[in-house]
């Protein structure tokens, strides 16, 4: 018989993980559908009862989102405008029922190429905090998600939090998702951007990420660099060229063709930037 454990503190959880062989269960919204027609043979470590892993707090200026914080909690939290993209993405994770139970760390650990939370966290320069009996380490998100369904988490590690550094919690952000229907849909392509402007209205810093167009959502660093110093207005979008999307590697599947994905990515990056520039009427996310 498989084992089932439901600890109430992170320490208990990592002590169990040190024994090895556990599959971690959080909201379960990816875990259960993935079982398909197979019996559950894994030992299940259910972290749903660990209160310390829930909620959003500040720690030395960083904004720390507990690993088991639900998408709905994120949407309802008071957060700087830089988090608008994350909130918009939270509203697109499945249905409201899914958002009520699905967790932010679960979305990262599941490591789907179409994970809705990843692009918005990439533009926030988020770090993933991992704990084990060996200690605590932090990895930038880009070094945490390694590939389709692959992460840098060791078998004995528990993701305890997502940290956003103070410096990255600035500016305006925006998120666009494109799917075959208007809602309740897995992305064909998505884009998140965060833009900081100087007193002259020029782009001081910017972060751009595209999801569902490569095995892991990617930042578009060359485009980011090319935009810095330009006025944050529609004219800046003229810079965007094919070369900026070289790092993407979309695939053909039932949702759309690779060619379509590539074009869609270019388009929605432009839309998200325009929105973050404030050239379109973006009014934040209603809870």
């Amino acid at each position: 018989m498989p084992r089932y454990a439901r600890p109430s503190t992170p320490d208990e959880a990592i002590a169990l993980l040190a024994e090895g062989g556990w599959t971690i269960l959080a909201g379960g919204t990816d875990f259960y559908p993935a079982q398909g027609a197979r019996p559950i043979r894994d030992d299940i470590l259910d972290i749903g009862a660990i209160e310390a892993l829930r909620g959003i707090r500040e720690d030395k200026g960083d904004i720390v989102i507990g690993a088991a914080t639900s998408w709905t909690e994120i949407v309802r939290a008071r957060l700087p405008m830089a988090f608008d993209a994350l909130k918009a993405a939270a509203r697109e994770v499945g249905s409201v029922q899914i958002q009520n139970t699905g967790t932010i760390a679960g979305n990262l650990c599941n490591a789907s190429p179409a994970a809705d939370g990843v692009p918005a966290l990439l533009v926030l320069d988020a770090e993933v905090e991992l704990a084990s009996t060996r200690g605590i380490r932090r990895l930038p998100l880009r070094d945490f998600v390694l590939g389709n369904r692959r992460t840098a988490r060791a078998a004995d590690e528990l993701v305890t939090a997502i940290r956003v550094p103070t410096a990255s919690a600035a500016g305006r952000s925006s998120f666009f998702k494109l799917g075959a229907r208007r809602y309740l849909v897995i992305s064909i392509a998505m884009a998140a951007v965060r833009v900081e402007t100087d007193l002259q209205g020029r782009i001081a810093r910017c972060a751009i990420a595209v999801g569902a167009c490569s095995a892991v959502a990617r930042r578009l660093e060359r485009l980011e660099a090319d935009l810095v110093g330009r006025p944050a207005d529609a004219a800046a979008l003229g810079v965007i060229g094919e070369r900026h999307f070289d790092g993407l590697a979309p695939i053909d599947d039932v949702r759309a063709s690779a060619v379509y994905r590539m074009e869609a990515a270019r388009e929605i990056v432009g839309r998200a930037l325009a929105d973050a520039f404030g050239t379109t009427a973006g009014q934040g996310v209603a809870a």
């Binding site: 559908p33 075959a180 229907r181 208007r182 809602y183 849909v185 897995i186 039932v254």
Partner: peptide, 10 residues
């Protein structure tokens, strides 16, 4: 999830 009936927003 993957048989795409229209949702209300469609």
């Amino acid at each position: 999830a993957e048989y795409h009936l229209p949702v209300n927003a469609d």
